[in-house]
Simulated scan of single mutants.
Amino acid sequence: MRLNHLDFHVPDIAETADFFIRHFGLTLKDMRGNNGLAILEDDTGLEIVLSHAIAKFGIADQVELQRQTYHIGFILPDRGDVDRVHVGLVAAGVQLSGPPAAMRGGWLFYCTAPGNILVEVGWRPAR
């Protein structure tokens, strides 16, 4: 069994899709409607779906809630990759937790993606 997709409710689908494409190398697989739904894919086939809040599942996204109720994480192959992503996010003016630091046996930092999505970016040594 493998995880197939995650669906995040965000107010601006195009802005959030652009963030993940530009900074994390995801590919736009499908954009439906005018800013209606985006399907992004990573290099392993995991899909990230970006959609608007749907009333039957709860009518608020994390921007409306004004809090972060979950986070997602990207694991990178090399410690230097974490530093390079951090530099790119700093240059783009993205909200960051601070510089990469040694935490929980790895090297990582957090940032906030459009849609108020908390994103962990890290590297861990091979076991």
Rank of each mutant, 00 (worst) to 15 (best):
D43S: 14
T112F: 08
I75M: 14
P99Y: 01
Q95W: 05
T44Y: 04
R104N: 14
L76K: 06
L28A: 11
A92W: 03
L3E: 12
A102L: 12
N35A: 01
L26C: 02
V63I: 11
G93I: 04
K56D: 14
V94L: 09
P11F: 07
V10C: 04
G73L: 00
T44C: 08
G33V: 03
L3A: 13
G36N: 08
L46F: 11
G36P: 03
N34W: 04
I59Q: 15
Q62D: 12
V90P: 10
E41A: 05
E47T: 04
Q95R: 13
L26K: 04
M103Q: 12
V121M: 08
M31A: 14
F19T: 08
L40T: 02
L28P: 01
D30K: 11
V94W: 02
R67Y: 13
D83A: 13
P114A: 06
I117L: 15
H23M: 04
N116F: 03
F8V: 04
A38R: 01
T69K: 05
L26Q: 00
R22G: 06
P114R: 13
C111E: 00
Q95M: 11
D78P: 09
V121A: 02
T27C: 07
L46T: 09
A102D: 15
G33K: 12
E47F: 02
I54E: 12
N116S: 02
P125K: 11
R67H: 12
N34P: 06
D30R: 10
D61K: 03
D42Q: 10
F57G: 03
A92S: 09
F57C: 09
R124S: 15
D81C: 00
V119W: 00
V121W: 05
E47V: 00
N34L: 06
